[in-house]
Write a protein that binds this DNA or RNA. Structure first.
Lengths: 191, 191, 191, 191
DNA sequence: AATGAATGAGTTTTCATTCAT
DNA sequence: AATGAATGAAAACTCATTCAT
């Protein structure tokens, strides 16, 4: 087994351990036991427990970040928004363990890590807010505080994914996207 | 200082410590230092670190739980929903430290605690889902999967409170309720 | 046993352990076993192993430093030099364990510690060199490179104390001082 | 590269590493990195870390030992003493890295090694003491405790070499020998 | 009731050494 | 002979909890 494969293997086992027990309850011993390697081997590939956790999360953040495409206001916006949601959901569902980590151990690992995560969320939020403001000018998005609109959309998505990934709700990617989009479209009250 | 007062004082200081640093980063030392009592004294009033954390959260969960009033389908529903949101937000904003704890250390304290928190959220969720289903039958709530509608509403509220309480966004209780209600009412796309 | 006493006790036991085994071979476990306390207790009083070692050495360096009195060139110099040697020897023989540490583990503990020790030795050296240069001007000290003269004197003293303290040579303080002084006075060849 | 050359190369690189960082701070990793060989290769040539260190020191001790010539009391003694000093200094300055090791990591590597070093020093010391006692009988050396005279001479030499090799003082071999000899001849006080 | 010194189980981390390739 | 991945024993250090005063 070459270095890269071994590294990925440990990373992958660590992901499962973190997903199952959470960051603090996961001991390096649990990880190496899961990976079937000696304790020292772990430190051959990763600086420490925090580093491997960070790498797991970073990889996912990068993938999520890349899945988001800036909305082109020259073209129809609705579909682009829906596509963005679809891609984000796809990436997150593709690696449910990491998504579980992301949604559960979001805070409390350590202050520096908290800041990094917050920065990412703010970046996504800003991106989304921009799209919504564009949409408002073009009359596609309802007027109002776009910052909050973006926030609510993220909250709804987050909660949905949490249920699916952590609680095991059985919804397909398409169903999730449709439900979310429909919610964003009409709200829930008829009035 | 009598027993009850001393107990509350430690509880209160612990709340601040947990709110600021999170559960794991908060050491019993930090708590007793903040409360100005000896380490041993802490254990006269609380079983252990987990117990005081749980009590802080439990009290809040109880208050939130009590603030929710079952929607009476015989009377106009909209206002009752809005009132429920208003009361929940009021309770949560009234004790921002605990709310911060609730929204940050949601998981990872220990498996038993995680389950308790989950149970509460599910209870609220079920309650809300019931109201929405009532509303759907009475034509007030848009048709659709009420379970998901409830979820989205909770996610939006949760995210909003997180920003206000953790990130320091400056919104009044009234503004929060209005924004949320308006979002629930119309969604964000105009279409 | 109050905090100060306990601290001193651990310090004292650590001194013996370091003196007997050297810094690197001395484990924190050895120290706490010698002191008859639990491992955690050690860390209650000292930051870490390096800190207690440094404190032991620092205390001695301070005492040695204070035992050195600047030579007053207005008064007869010989006696003052002899008195300085006497006092240094007295301090060092008074705590043979620490002296053993000082002469054995002089280097290799860690770079920062090495620098501190070197700085002290240079200070003593400079002081001595100054005295010798005064002495040369007053015709009491043989002409020559005072820097080297000071160095040789220190080397001779160091070696003598090493034998007495580490190898167990049986010389009284007075004998040591006399032998050293006599050596400084006449050298060893008759020519 | 044949076995002997490879062995010498590793030995030589290890010497530099030990000289720079001291025994304990030098990791096998540092040595193999410096030598440009794989970790396993190191163990093909040397039993363990202690063995290579010991060999480096042993070689030097052998050379120093061989450089010392027993003083022939039938011939003029002074020159023979000076020649001995000269040769010792020559050998030690010829390999400054090892000399640095010898003067710095004098103790603390491990008990057995400490004993070996001590044995060597005692041998040299005994040799020198013998010469001085001869010299005393022939009226060339000042009367007194020859054991201590030998010790002081060694201390002075040791300190001088330490400054030159570790602190970088710039003295030629000849200057070192002259200064030391002159010190041994007259001491430093005029009286 | 209160104190705070003491405890020691539990974790992380390092690094000399081995061994399959 | 050489490699370097893997090993695991050995240390250091933390901190929730206890208990004698």
């Amino acid at each position: 087994m070459d270095k890269t494969a071994r590294r990925l293997q440990i990373l992958s086992e660590a992901r499962e351990v973190f997903a199952k027990q959470g960051y603090h309850a996961s001991k390096v011993d649990d990880i190496v036991a899961a990976a079937g390697v000696a304790r020292g081997t772990f430190y051959l590939y990763f600086q420490d427990k925090r580093a491997i956790f960070e790498e797991i999360v970073d990889r996912m953040l990068t993938r999520v970040g890349m899945s988001i495409v800036r909305v082109d206001v020259e073209r129809p916006v609705e579909n682009q928004i829906k596509e963005n949601i679809r891609r984000i959901v796809e990436v997150l569902l593709d690696d449910r363990s990491t998504t579980r980590i992301l949604l559960s151990d979001a805070r409390g690992v350590d202050p520096q890590f908290d800041r990094k995560l917050q920065a990412f969320m703010e970046e996504v939020h800003t991106l989304m807010q921009g799209s919504l403001e564009d949409g408002q000018q073009r009359g596609i998005v309802r007027p109002g505080d776009a910052r909050i609109q973006a926030l609510f959309a993220m909250g709804a998505l987050r909660e949905m994914l949490f249920q699916v990934v952590v609680r095991g709700w059985d919804y397909s990617q398409e169903a999730i996207v449709d439900e979310l989009y429909s919610f964003l479209e009409h709200g829930l009250l008829r009035v």
